[in-house]
Amino acid sequence: MKVITFILSLVLMAPAFANDENPAKQLLLKMADAVHNRNFDASFVVVKGKSMEPYRWLHAKQGNTELEHLSLLNGAGLEMVRIDSQVTYFEPQSEPYSIDTDSIAGPIPEVLFKDIERLSQHYDFVLGGKGRIAGRAAQLVRIESKDEYKFNYWLWLDAESSLLLKSAYVNQAGEMLEQLQLTHISVTEEPAALLLEMLNREFPTPLPAAATSQSEANTSSNNWQIGWLPSGFSLLKSDRHKLDLNNELTDYYLYSDGFVEVSIFVQRPLPGRRPSGALSSGATTVYVHNSGSFDVSVVGNIPATTAKAIAESVARPL
């Protein structure tokens, strides 16, 4: 009994000085630093259920300029290029475009390479065991959601260089839903020629900063009432626009808790009786809720139960 009380008191005391002394957090910061300052050429695969996506990831630091290139190798492909704080997306189905941001929105959550401190309100950082990943000694770091409404994220970091070797979205039952595994990484002294070539290329000028337009957009268009979201999520943007693929009009809301993004779409219902339900691919869930006079769809890397609860909480404006 005494032992249990002792452990309990330790657990309760831990948050008090977690900020500076959490080794898991320190490791993540080291990883972010390594990812930003090293020249490397890596390949990784993302396994989502029964599908698999291979990527190549190059990064270089040339003087004070960061160069990064992430490319999806299968199918029609997707190329993402970053020069410092400008990211350009090349997609098969549309014109390339640039965004003013200092990180690529790839399969790895961007916040991990940045300020993870702001996640600590809703996630715990826990050190896991050691193992061997991609032929290297690796240390597991677990980012655990404080409530059951989100997935956990586990990362295996190279014990030597702190670079990422493997990561996974893990549900509350401990099952890995979506895994990312490096198959090869080489760290070099000199930046790759491919990346240096980028400096001589012209890229589309970035779209006007979306950040400035968001506050007006919030008030102007939609006022659906979104009754429930897990704590920590805040509204980043809302507007009414047409979807690219099928030209359907939608009221759109983008929420984020700093780690995962959730999109909420409110649309005119499709004809016919259709049941509400969820689809999932890896960690991504799509929940389609048929609410009679309107359809609500929720998309994001969240459990299906959470997506369902969000979708069902959307109500008509008063």
Binding site: V87, Y89, I99, D100, T101, D102, S103, A105, E110, V111, A209, A210, A211, Q214, S234, L236, K237, L243, D244, L245, N246, E248, T250, Y252, L254, S256, G258, E261, S263, F265, Q267, L270, R274, L279, T284, V286, V288, S297, V299, G300
Partner: peptide
């Protein structure tokens, strides 16, 4: 319905790209 779901997933992916900078500004 399939088309719609496809469109939604793609739209989510695209919107998520600006999420980080929006969140930072926020």
């Amino acid at each position: 319905q399939q088309q719609r779901i496809g469109a939604l997933v793609l739209e989510h992916q695209r919107q998520a790209r600006v999420a980080y900078s929006l969140e930072k500004a926020h």
